[in-house]
Amino acid sequence: MEKVLDPRFQRLDIFKAQINGPTEKLDQLPTFEVFVLLREAGIYQHEGIVHAPDREMAFLFAKEQFSRRQTCAGIWTIETPNIFVSPYSENKVSIYDAVQASAETGNEPYKIFHMLKRGKQHKYAGKVHANSPEHALQVAKAALDVSKPVLNAWVARESDFFETSEEDKEIWNTLPEKTFREAIDYKGQAKIDAFLAENNKTS
């Protein structure tokens, strides 16, 4: 076995670690679905999940996992089971074809997300007031733009989301300046050219 080269691990007794792993109950945290708003004029889009103990911590984690590049103007997090998922439809068939539109609204605000193409993320389609997720889809059919076939919809109560507050949005202020995380910051051609020119001179 080679000597441990990383000074961080030379400081630990790594070969002593005993893991009870599979025999112990899995300490699997719940998952939260994360929706990100890239810029103020855009729309919220599903970006993935985080494991977290609650939706506030999920927000703290999502901030660095899903918005450490470019820009961000807001994040929503919601625990996975709080999202009602419609069936998937076949292409060109909208899930709303099987839904009866309803002009009668309810009291609870719901957020609706649509997937328009397989392989693409769910995007925020709008908010409706309804009495249940099923009812929310009926209201959505009447109230939202469903002109394009919707292949799948997610519906969730607005009160189940953790949303970025206005005053917290400053946490993304310096994000565009983190250029050391961007490819564009690493230009090497000039050095190569100078090196080649030097070599041509000497040879």
Binding site: E56, L60, K63, D168, E170, I171, N173, T174
Partner: peptide
Amino acid sequence: KLKGECRYHSMHADG
């Protein structure tokens, strides 16, 4: 400029 960045650090720590 850095206030927002530090705000997140503090939120994270408090949480």
